[in-house]
């Protein structure tokens, strides 16, 4: 599959068929980033600065360069850029993560997970 022209400029793992995702969360992180860019929340050059810094730090610390390491950098960059652009704060993210964790640990079998129940 052909990438959109704007996406050809960003270097994502891909083969002849298009982007390669090893796990769903990688595709989800990728999709959120593309949609925020399309909505004008940040430009690809702004993204490249933040993402590039993550990759450099990762490489300097001797982390792997595989697909998973790549998308872990991607995810860290996405968390940083949404904070930089005042879309979400780091605190909101960590609170929400704790809620998801709490809900996933305590949701009884057969009940759909609902983090809103625990937020009064």
């Amino acid at each position: 599959m052909q990438l959109d022209p704007v996406l050809q400029a960003i270097d994502i793992p891909q083969d002849g068929d298009g982007p390669v995702f090893e796990e769903p969360w990688q595709a989800q992180a990728f999709a959120m980033t593309v949609k925020l860019n399309e909505a004008g929340q940040f430009s690809w050059s702004e993204w490249a600065d933040v993402f590039g810094a993550e990759i450099s730090a990762d490489t300097a610390s001797g982390q792997g360069v595989g697909n998973t390491a790549y998308y872990l950098c991607w995810l860290s960059a996405l968390e940083k850029i949404v904070a930089q652009k005042n879309l979400l704060t780091a605190e909101q993210l960590s609170t929400r993560k704790a809620e998801w964790r709490e809900a996933s640990e305590h949701t009884p079998h057969g009940q759909p997970i609902d983090i809103h129940k625990s937020r009064k």
Binding site: A29, M32, L75, E79, L88, Q92, L93, K97, W100, I115
Partner: peptide, 10 residues
């Protein structure tokens, strides 16, 4: 969890 948190908040 990190991805779900980002996704649900956004």
């Amino acid at each position: 969890l990190r991805v779900k948190s980002l996704e649900s908040l956004l």
